[in-house]
């Protein structure tokens, strides 16, 4: 059975991949997916901590409950996010973030 460190390592890798995607990819849909990867990384570490911090052979289910909440909220967020992206695409005819610079100060 893998140890907690290995789980956290995988979780950290996932988070880093997601962050790199958010920072460096151009396509806004890909950025959005990378965001979801970051959320998954967080979920993974929560579940791992839950598994390894149990008492008397039983895991601490608090974190797992929290993960369910994160997943449901993330689902709602995806719906809203995708809707925004669709609206954005309709307005600007692009999904490339370099083209969206109207907020420059």
């Amino acid at each position: 059975m893998p140890s907690l460190n290995e789980y956290l390592m995988v979780s950290g890798l996932l988070f880093a991949i997601g962050l790199a995607g958010v920072l460096f990819r151009r396509n806004i849909i890909v950025i959005f997916m990378c965001l979801e990867i970051m959320l998954s990384a967080a979920n993974l570490s929560l579940v791992a901590f839950s598994r390894f911090s149990g008492q008397g052979g039983l895991p601490d289910y608090d974190a797992q409950v929290l993960v369910f909440f994160v997943i449901t909220v993330a689902a709602a967020e995806v719906a809203v996010g995708l809707a925004i992206i669709v609206a954005l695409f309709r307005a600007r005819r692009t999904v490339h973030v370099e083209d969206l610079t109207s907020m420059r100060g």
């Binding site: 958010v22 950025i31 370099e98 969206l100 610079t101 109207s102 907020m103 420059r104 100060g105």
Partner: peptide
């Protein structure tokens, strides 16, 4: 103002 780069990333 320099911080408001206008780029999402």
């Amino acid at each position: 103002r320099g911080m408001q780069v206008g780029n999402l990333q």
